[in-house]
């Protein structure tokens, strides 16, 4: 009761938010709220298995998939507010409201009768109850659905597969290219040192110092550089490094 009346307004508001949000990511997040609220409502209606599955599968997998694709497709894209089709919004609202009114009318007019409740069905537990139904009466649908899942997975792979447009460069070609880059632009041909090898501090805004004491530009994010939030290591990197006792060493750099 309480769950329902608390969650119902939230769900409605989030549904509207999902429909009306400008950025797609916001829509996804609103949908996540709706889905979790639904899970709670399932739990309220004596469907614990569905409660779990809703969160794990729907919110956790399907919605995350949505977010992945959103990021692939363009997370910054925002729908413009101008409606290109004349009268589409008005008509859509009208049809939607009409549908809602009719459905609610239909619901209001039906006599439901007494609620039986799932106590008897859940006697052995909700999961065994579901399982017994699934593998007896609905086993054929179950098998077909599994085939569907396999098909869907294979289909997604086929659809998302990208063919190579250029031939894969061989090892020799890679080496030659690297040597050329080094000769022309001075780019280091070998692998870079691992993260943390030359770090002096474990904060991202402090550059690492190369063996000759100069700060390495490669260790700082471009964004930070652009923003200008990089600490300077002038104090430490000026001259040749002296190896001192660990407890006398000063950490970090003076400002």
């Amino acid at each position: 009761m309480i769950a329902f009346w608390t969650l119902a307004p939230i769900m409605i508001i989030c549904a509207f938010g999902m429909v009306l949000a400008r950025k797609a990511v916001h829509s996804a997040l609103f949908l996540a709220v709706v889905m979790i609220s639904l899970a709670i409502l399932y739990a309220d209606q004596e469907a614990p298995f569905l409660f779990a599955v809703q969160i794990i599968v729907y919110t956790g997998a399907v919605l995350m998939l949505f977010l992945f694709v959103l990021m692939l497709v363009g997370v910054d894209t925002a729908d413009s507010l101008i409606e290109t089709l004349r009268g589409q919004r008005a008509l859509a609202a009208a049809a939607g409201i009409l549908l809602a009114v009719l459905l609610i009318l239909a619901i209001a007019q039906t006599t439901i009768g007494t609620v039986v409740g799932l106590q008897r069905a859940n006697l052995d537990g909700n999961v065994p109850g579901l399982a017994s139904l699934l593998f007896s009466r609905y086993v054929f649908a179950f098998e077909v659905t599994s085939a569907l899942l396999i098909t869907a997975a294979v289909g997604a792979m086929v659809l998302a597969h990208r063919e190579r447009l250029t031939p894969k460069p061989t090892q020799r070609e890679v080496v030659l290219q690297r040597m050329q880059d080094y000769a022309a632009h001075g780019i280091h041909p070998g692998p870079l040192p691992g993260p943390g090898t030359f770090a002096r501090h474990n904060s991202v805004d402090t550059p690492a110092l190369l063996p000759d004491g100069t700060p390495s530009e490669l260790s700082i994010s471009r964004v930070m550089r652009a923003r200008g939030t990089v600490r300077s290591v002038a104090g430490e990197a000026a001259g040749p490094l002296q190896i001192e006792a660990p407890d006398e060493e000063s950490e970090g750099g003076e400002e």
Binding site: A15, V19, A93
Partner: peptide, 14 residues
């Protein structure tokens, strides 16, 4: 019913 209708409107509008 309300969620369904809101979803339907969303399909048409976005």
């Amino acid at each position: 019913a309300l969620l369904f209708s809101i979803g339907a409107i969303g399909v048409l509008v976005r």
